[in-house]
Simulated scan of single mutants.
Amino acid sequence: MKKFGLLLAGGIAACVLLVNVGPMIGLAISLVILYFVFKQFMKTESTSRKIVWGLIGLAALAASVSNIPSIVGVAAAYVLYLVYKKWTESKKTVMKEEADPFVSFERQWADLERS
């Protein structure tokens, strides 16, 4: 039943991720353009160029804000990662650590004496 729940959650997350791939790419591109525009705006000293870079920056900011719902796609990718990690998790048997390190030695010594 646990595997079915993981499969269901993974399937839903994969569908949400596939739906939001386009907006995620658009958000990434618009943020890169916004960063480049900001760097150019800070470099230039001409007022007219600052106005032009400012207008381009506003357009890039508008494009970035319009792609904000793609954050749902990022969250879906994270959920998909968690489902994959949980799915491939191997069940390890935890051996009980004994407090006294000489217990194992004493057991082996007893085995040697019996031989």
Rank of each mutant, 00 (worst) to 15 (best):
L82A: 09
P101W: 01
T88D: 12
M95V: 07
S90P: 12
V37Y: 13
F102C: 04
Y84M: 15
R114D: 00
K86S: 10
G11K: 12
P23C: 03
V103C: 01
L112D: 10
E98K: 08
L31G: 02
R107Y: 02
G5W: 05
L82T: 02
Y35W: 08
F102H: 13
K43H: 15
K2F: 09
K91N: 14
K96C: 01
A110T: 07
K3G: 11
P69C: 05
K39W: 10
M24G: 09
S48Q: 00
M95E: 05
E113W: 07
S66A: 13
K86W: 06
Q108G: 15
G57V: 00
S66D: 14
A63D: 07
Y81K: 15
A28G: 06
L82Q: 11
P23L: 12
G54E: 14
E45G: 01
S46C: 12
L34R: 11
L58D: 10
F38S: 15
A9T: 03
W53E: 07
E98F: 07
L80D: 06
L7P: 02
W53N: 07
V37S: 08
G10K: 06
V83F: 10
L27V: 06
C15A: 14
A75L: 13
F36V: 13
G73M: 06
V83Q: 01
